[in-house]
Amino acid sequence: MKTHLFPNFLTDKLEYKICKNYWETKIEYLLQKDKIINPVQYLNTQYVNGLEQLTGNPIVNYFIKSKNKALRIIQTEPETETVEFSAWTNKFQTDDLDTIELVISLELTPEAEQVTFDFIRKWIVSDFSASVMEKYIDYVYENKKSLQTANMT
């Protein structure tokens, strides 16, 4: 059985806030450590009436100007007993921004979090191209079964 972190984040507002802060702290620390500065939010996460969405879709999003790359993390409700994640790259074009985003969708377990941060490092710090990133994602996904049983504490 997999342990989900912040399992009630979609029904408990305080837990959602703590969960979001957890992501922000870890990602911003990772970026800062590698001297990647000024990550900014590039997506609107509020409804028109000003309420925050609190859907986890996305839980965090960053555009990193120095790399011209973006990162969107989607945290979904705990539904499975396996290590659940998927990831892809996506061309992001609006009037204001032309970039490529790495999108990672996951149920937050320690194992899926480890995969997520590995993907973030490869995408932002190691600066993988989109095509190399896609191949790497495929490789990790194909070997997903090994994550189910591995001790990844």
Binding site: Y42, L43, N44, E84
Partner: peptide, 9 residues
């Protein structure tokens, strides 16, 4: 700008 994705688990 809002992007949302709903993946098939």
């Amino acid at each position: 700008t809002a992007f949302n994705s709903f993946n098939v688990k």
